[in-house]
Amino acid sequence: MNSIVLLSATDLALAAVLILGLALLSLLMGLGLIRSLTVAALRTVIQLILIGLVLKAVFAQSDPLWTAVIALTMLLVAGREVMARQHRRFDGWWGIGLGTSAMFISTFSITLLVLLVIIQAEPWYAPQYAIPLLGMMFGNTMNGIALGLDRLTQQAWQQRAIIEARLALGQDARQAIADIRRDSVRTGMVPMINAMATAGLVSLPGMMTGQILAGVDPVEAVNYQILIMFMVTAGTGFGTIAAIVLGARRLFDERQRLCLGRLSPGRYS
């Protein structure tokens, strides 16, 4: 295995010039992107430097507690992000609880399964495996659930007359919202399904890219990539279905009446 070419601060500064160039263009064209672009770029640098230091420290010791703490932090931040991406979010606990609990169940169960049964590292909770896997799971399931829930609430709001016409015909809540539910799950799943369809043809996914850069034989690197893509797709699928099913039920009360009052207009941040 060749050792990877290490990057220095100067190298990164040169890369940052690309971002500065983009910001300058935004300024000249009046696109108004400077602020969000520079804030995001700064956040990327700071957050990644910090997580790099944290991971270095965590990998150096063997207490699984730290892995759990990091996992929990990721979960909560992802849950908050799901809520922030809703045009109309659920009131109260449901706002953050819906996405968070769906991700909790799907991500942790699948990651545990993979760590214990497939990878079987020593120990099975080794942070070098657990944390990157969780990170990729959370990143993608967060996307799928956010898209799916947003679709659900938008459609329910826009099609309220249709939903109520179906209720008025004596359909129960599940039947009345069945088409919207199906559509929302599909919306959440499309990005991952597209990614799987084009993997290797259009893009080389991040995980195998990293391994190849570190000198791993490409034929070996793709094995992990395949594993990851199956994990992530299953996690996104189960998580999105769970979130949509729970969310769709939350839209109706105990008399199976449509309760759009449980949604409040959100902010697109």
Binding site: A161, E164, L167, A168, L169, G170, D172, R257
Partner: peptide, 29 residues
């Protein structure tokens, strides 16, 4: 009665009708 059971017996016809499938027949039980 449950909500749907009541609504099968007490039917509300809105002023503006709604249609959600492409074909007419699909709406009729």
């Amino acid at each position: 009665y449950s909500g749907p059971e009541w609504r099968r017996r007490v039917a509300y016809l809105a002023a503006e009708s709604q249609w959600w499938f492409d074909d007419v027949a699909a709406h009729f039980s």
